[in-house]
Nucleic acid binder design. Structure first.
Length: 111
DNA sequence: GTGGTGACGACAC
DNA sequence: GGTGTCGCCACCA
């Protein structure tokens, strides 16, 4: 059968792609949704691997628990901040303003 | 097969 | 209250 390892990453990609426009989520929230809240590092690593995916993943909508654009350095072309601002999100000093207002929980996918 | 690393988070001191 | 350390799981050398 298929490797279970892909399931974890697959879940991360699925959740990230389901992030609605103008909303953002955190690594910890995704990790928690997957069942391992402490596996936030794995979520970040999944984003790194998402780079190799054929399917586009809005990784720019994923920030750390503080609402800081920690992974912006990994983005090519336009900055991560520009993309978020284009969605109506206000960012000052790499920090999302009203982070709680734009914070989207993966749990929203559940009924 | 082992060790080190990583776009983080929470806890201990 | 800031700093330091561990934990989590998967990938690379």
């Amino acid at each position: 059968m298929m490797s279970k390892s892909e399931n974890f990453f697959e879940q991360v990609y699925q959740v990230v792609e389901q992030i609605p426009y103008g909303k953002v989520t955190t690594y910890g929230a995704i990790a928690e949704f997957l069942g391992s809240k402490s596996a936030s590092r794995m979520v970040g690593w999944a984003m790194n691997n998402a780079h190799t995916l054929v399917k586009p993943v809005p990784a720019h909508r994923v920030v750390n628990r503080q609402g800081l654009l920690t992974g912006k350095m990994h983005f090519k072309g336009q900055s991560m901040q520009e993309r978020l601002e284009a969605e109506g999100i206000v960012i000052i000093d790499d920090q999302i303003q009203g982070f709680e207002s734009v914070f989207w929980h993966p749990n929203t996918l559940l009924p």
